[in-house]
Nucleic acid binder design. Structure first.
Lengths: 347, 347
DNA sequence: CGAAACAATGAAACCGTTTTCATTGGCGGT
DNA sequence: ACCGCCAATGAAAACGGTTTCATTGTTTCG
């Protein structure tokens, strides 16, 4: 920068301004500086800038599994919004290791990032610890899954209402006996979807045959579906707490000789990309994942800039996507052949 | 740091050493410093460290689509390896905008990252430009897709051999007429797979009915499959250059009333997670995506540290995964060619 | 016409580390 | 007792920007 200043015949300070607040400079001066720095291939050193400014224009995203299509599309939304606001993205895959979040969150204290976006519902550091307390004073936002601690802004959908919608849909289709494959215990999404589904079932006098617990994996969907098949009073419809488990369940049902949806309806949750090309195409709840990501970034940005948040909780609209995997209940099929509105051909 | 030094009764320098090279300190001194910094909740400011050390322990990954399951698993491998080597990951989604790579790559010049890992085959900056020249002197590695410029280390599989394997497989299954749905022109993967497949077809005297060009999307697989169906001499097997296009093709074939694999075999490439769940399960070429990511990070690390690279090109083993979507060719006797229905014409 | 506000620039302090070089005392070898 | 060596520590100079405050002319306005 000193060299640029010299070549342009101005002070160091002026060159700095040329890059951080060009409007304050006389046009002629600015031009000279630009030409000088072009000649010298000059680029501002962002470490020095961050050091002095005490902010890095970077945001850290913590998620349990980058390779999971649900998260990766949220991530894409975050990335877009980050880029548009001149920020850069750091990602950490915390996986199953609970301590990884802590070490990643150290980046916040180390001033490498300005904010933390949490997709795994696990707020780093031990509750009550000083580190946790400091974290709560920093820009943090939870997406999709809530964190236990109060005061952390949240971006997501109304999972209770969405699950209730599913129950109502199944009732509309004539089902009387239904079951639920839930996510892992302790997960906020699991709880909300269970609550919503049982509430909706109750409202429509559906007999909720039982809830089984999976772990959001295809395999667990298959395994829990096998359990459901063994019940004496088999349900005619199953609501899985995410699409992967729904795929697994459908697989198990098919393997057991049942047709989906003729003999068994299955509804998923999330509407990941593969759901529409699955055979049968999956009826599911669409989450606006990209918008969730963008919104999360916006909330983080507001916190960084000190702008007052519009609300500490942003609930986006979900959408029930009717496809082939959920149909009329077997008994009701003959009675009335009411066709639900199917989506137009996928892709 | 000054406060910690004061509290521990040592010089600033010594505290610095406690965090960057603790072995050089007397155990007792180290203990005092650790206790002091714990009391003060001290954390090293990584911006200052990077500024002084002129390295950031961060790596930038550029990819065309984070939400694409192929890339996201490679990314996961990179993340793991980065974390294990004490590095942190920046990701940029360059999408279809060719200039985004340039602005992201600025992070390298700005000293925010130490290396660049390219998944999109597009080396930033105009060829021949000074910026490009400087980039080539920095740690850069290409994964999966090659970059045009020589001298950039590459990590991937032998796409030619893999595509040839597919041709041989189809020949072994008794197919005589085959077709290929390729990726977008100009893509190195597209070219290599085309070359390998036609070579393999030639070796086994397969009649390569034609090559159509898709863009790696499900939709393009469906559309190009419709084109293939319109050919007078319809092939009995199709090799798609990735799994998504294979899914789209299968969908189109099914919609036209063909059974897969009885009437038409389909082979994909990549083995993404849903390929085995798909109905029919997809026969495909598995790429060791996670290992590719880890290896790429290792190559980048070697460049950063100045360690001589074992090789400028690392080729990992691929694997032909035999599933249901590719089967025996319909025997000539039974080959009463099914009439295809164009009820749901894509146009 | 004079005071005050303003626009454009510069000098210098500061951000928080790392690293070179110097200093000190202890130690083994002769 | 001397010399050199080494381990442990400290003083001070970077690293490359930003920002406060001061210093100029130049307007503007009463």
């Amino acid at each position: 920068m000193r060299d640029v200043a010299e070549l342009a015949g101005v002070a160091l300070t002026t060159v700095s301004r040329a890059f951080s607040d060009p409007g304050k400079l006389a046009p002629e001066t600015l031009r000279r500086i630009e030409s000088a720095s072009a000649n010298l291939n000059y680029t501002v050193n962002l470490n020095a800038r961050s050091l002095r400014r005490r902010s890095s224009d970077a945001v850290l995203v913590l998620l349990p599994d980058i390779a999971n299509p649900f998260f990766s599309l949220v991530l894409k939304g975050i990335e877009e919004a980050a880029r548009e606001s001149g920020r850069v993205l750091l990602v950490g895959d915390t996986g199953s290791d609970a301590t990884l979040g802590d070490s990643y969150a150290g980046q916040l204290e180390a001033r490498t990032v300005d904010a933390l976006i949490l997709l795994d519902g696990r707020l780093p550091f031990r509750p009550g610890s000083p580190a946790r307390a400091r974290l709560l004073r920093s820009p943090v936002v939870a997406v999709s899954e809530r964190v236990a601690e109060a005061g952390v802004p949240y971006v997501g959908i109304d999972n209770v209402a969405a699950a209730r919608d599913v129950a109502h849909l199944l009732a509309d289709l004539g089902h009387r006996r239904v079951a639920h494959i839930g996510g892992p215990a302790g997960n906020s999404l699991t709880q909300e979807r269970e609550i919503g589904f049982s509430a909706g079932a109750c409202e429509r006098a559906l007999w909720l045959g039982g809830m089984v617990t999976g772990d959001f994996s295809i395999r667990s969907g298959r395994d829990t579906a096998a359990v459901i098949l063994s019940w004496p009073d088999r349900p005619t419809a199953v609501f899985a707490a995410n699409d992967e488990m729904a795929f697994g369940a459908i697989h198990a049902f098919k393997a057991a000789g049942l047709r989906v949806p003729e003999d068994m309806s299955v509804v998923g949750f999330d509407d990941i990309a593969f759901s529409e090309i699955h055979d049968p195409a999956l009826t599911t709840v669409r989450q606006p994942r990209r918008a969730m990501g963008r919104t999360a970034m916006a909330v983080a940005a507001a916190q960084i800039e000190g702008t007052p948040l519009p609300a500490s909780t942003v609930i986006l609209a979900h959408e029930l996507v009717l496809r082939a995997s959920a149909g009329q209940a077997p008994s009701a099929a003959n009675a009335k052949r009411k066709r639900v509105a199917f989506e137009r051909a996928p892709f």
